[in-house]
């Protein structure tokens, strides 16, 4: 394709878009809205996943021994846990230490031991860290079967629930995006159809004098592509700005929520939007051309 021809195509696409400015605008806005929602769901899914992963990697197994376990047996149990495959670290927190931590949490002026009548009711405790969070369930079961172990605790329930939320989000997002995407596609089809209609005389003359099919098609493809990309640009801008604002607010108000601020992820989402916009634009044009531009 010659450069001058490309210039001609771009000019034709541009004029054609302005000829039906309102419809073009509606198509762009519609693409923008559906892509914005797509982006919002992508970021939401990233973040929930990130939170789940953070929780999962922080997860340790708390192993409570039976209260009456003598110190020697407790230490032997610790050794047994340490030898299990997949265990990376075992911290022993004897009942005295546990009591000290508890009384510290309650306030130093509080005579906890005195209040308890000189008897420490706490069990010995191991904090076990594991190399692979996915293995945590099997390991926890293995530890629980040791004779001196009263019970084990780990954060799996929270993680499971979060994973469920992600699954839900995916379905909800996919459904919503599909509906909005179809709406956007429909508007692009309509815009290009009108563009073809208002240039039908030119198109018919072009056919008679022997312009190639692609020479006739390109301006419309470019117009569709431009509608899609402009929509993606608008969506990307609002998503980026909105997300930055949200991150700042969260950082101030909810310090413990680990939001994704990784620039590459956000960039990826925005590239996803651009690809989505291009797809809607080109697909819409394609459908329109197939029905109204039989060349």
């Amino acid at each position: 394709m010659k450069l001058r021809t490309l210039g001609y195509f771009v000019r034709q696409a541009w004029y054609s878009m302005w000829r039906n400015a309102w419809l073009s605008l509606a198509a762009m806005a519609s693409v923008a809205v559906s892509l914005f929602i797509l982006g919002a769901f992508l970021l939401l899914a990233f973040n929930v996943e990130n939170i789940a992963r953070t929780l999962q990697s922080n997860v340790e197994i708390a192993v409570f021994l039976k209260v009456e376990t003598p110190r020697q047996k407790a230490i032997a149990t610790g050794e047994a846990i340490r030898k299990l495959p997949g265990v990376t670290a075992v911290d022993f927190i004897p009942k005295e230490e546990g009591l000290r931590i508890l009384s510290q949490q309650l306030g130093n002026e509080h005579d906890l031991l005195g209040a308890l009548g000189g008897v420490n009711p706490l069990p010995d405790l191991f904090r076990v860290r594991v190399s692979d969070p996915a293995e945590i369930q099997t390991l926890a079961a293995a530890i629980a079967s040791l004779p001196e172990v009263e019970k084990v605790n780990y954060g799996q329930a929270v993680v499971e629930r979060l994973l469920q939320v992600i699954r839900w989000l995916r379905w909800l997002g996919a459904g919503l995006i599909l509906m909005l995407g179809l709406g956007a596609l429909f508007l692009v089809i309509l815009t290009i159809r009108l563009a073809i209609y208002s240039r039908r005389r030119e198109i018919s003359i072009m056919k008679y004098v022997g312009a190639t099919d692609w020479f006739i098609r390109w301006p419309f493809l470019l117009e569709g592509l431009f509608l899609g990309l402009a929509g993606a640009g608008i969506a990307g801008f609002f998503l980026y700005a909105g997300y930055n604002f949200l991150v700042q607010q969260v950082r101030l108000a909810l310090v413990f929520v680990p939001l994704v601020t990784d620039a590459s992820l956000i960039q990826m989402s925005i590239w996803g939007l651009v690809a989505g916009g291009a797809f809607i634009g080109i697909a819409g044009t394609y459908f329109s051309m197939r029905r109204f531009l039989r060349v």
Partner: peptide, 30 residues
Amino acid sequence: RRNIGVVFQDFRLLPDRTVAENVAFALEVL
């Protein structure tokens, strides 16, 4: 079609182009 010129009863000129531009259009699109 580049080897066959066509003329119609209703002329089919583009109203927003001059005569010269209408004639040139047939070559521009080639």
